[in-house]
Design a protein around this nucleic acid. Sequence first.
DNA 1: GGCGAAATAATACGTTTGGGTGATTTTATT
DNA 2: AATAAAATCACCCAAACGTATTATTTCGCC
Lengths: 226, 226
Amino acid sequence: MTIPKIPVGIVDDKSQNRLLFTERLNFSEEIAVVMTAADGKDFLDQMKRMDFPQRPAVILMDVEMAEMDGIAAVQAGKILYPDVRFLMLTVFDDDDKIFEAIKAGADGYLLKNEKISTIIDCIVQLSESGSAPMSPRIARKTLDLLMKASIPKMEEGNKERHDYELSDRETEILKLTIDGYSYRQIAERLFLSGNTIKKHLANIYHKLHVTSKAQAIKIATRNRLI
Amino acid sequence: MTIPKIPVGIVDDKSQNRLLFTERLNFSEEIAVVMTAADGKDFLDQMKRMDFPQRPAVILMDVEMAEMDGIAAVQAGKILYPDVRFLMLTVFDDDDKIFEAIKAGADGYLLKNEKISTIIDCIVQLSESGSAPMSPRIARKTLDLLMKASIPKMEEGNKERHDYELSDRETEILKLTIDGYSYRQIAERLFLSGNTIKKHLANIYHKLHVTSKAQAIKIATRNRLI
DNA sequence: GGCGAAATAATACGTTTGGGTGATTTTATT
DNA sequence: AATAAAATCACCCAAACGTATTATTTCGCC
């Protein structure tokens, strides 16, 4: 063989799975399964006993395991062997698990029911470019998580926060709207005609590209232009 | 033609790109490009002028644009048309841009040099299952971002926050209301009658002691019972 | 003095919402 | 099996809202 195969390790507590994956992955030209382990401890033990050249470059790591689960294993493994790529395999797309695994340093995240050819592609990609393969459902979850997350480093640089160029009056009226006042109530409070408030709101909607109070509130609060 | 094609929109400020993508995507059996826009404003205007059945289900959105960039366009678009999927296209995998786009509500993120067949696959997947396609390099970035991120843990303490005892369904509907959906839109989304949504909202109002959407939003966000 | 941008206001029309009342069906819980 | 609590849906009515168009007034500013 001219092309050196990618050495791969498999960690799964069900021996049936280990066999299945080993068989199927070895079927590929580009991959050689060089290690199988039954849990996190087993995996770390074996890694310690191998020396560098034989060590797997990519680990398929089952997330749910009895003894020492995939997350803990990755956490330890990443520190000991930073160049080894960890590809998590899971049946569930559970938010917490995904987040934990990512924080632990997982390099990719696939659902177990993924086609074997996809998994092979991901392993190759991971070992060649270090990029992160991800099942779409997982990607969706990470996006959801990111959307809820707050990145600490957002000091000043990023205040992208679009300027919708609302006038003072418009801002005032928008604020009252967010406070739950109706046209009439705002009109009374500002000694204006209800029609005027309505007109202002219409202008505001145009500027914010929305079509209702609720939507305007959403945009306004999200961009803190109140 | 038996299979209904997926209506797709393209937003890019370079006319050359619009033409290129239109041509290539229309080549696919499953896709029909039904709209092209030169920037965010143009896109929103065109969307407003179309009614539901003709509207694109998936938008290919260029991130870097002169007039109103892809991020702002997604932010507004997602609120106005929550069911439309936005697939961001970019040449750079710039951290901040990615994060901004995700927070704005992008559904997927691809590099522009992706193969056209990949893009087509992603569009189909996105429209069928709503899952998130992502170029591996982008996925890598989101993982890096997530690793640095802190998920806001809402402990206890600071707020009195009394319990309004909303049912699960009520909470769900309240959440959608806060997201700017009308009765009708919520009804469609949950496969219920508009009257049912109205009834739920009425019950919610009673429980929160309010009389309008805006007020309900205020109470709900203040007590973060969403 | 006049130009332009906000602010003010009216009118008109169709749609959405809020309020009330009542009824049927599901889904727990005992 | 009996009951209670949610969830579902319908109908009516009036008020509030969203959109469009047009017009007058005010105010800063060159």
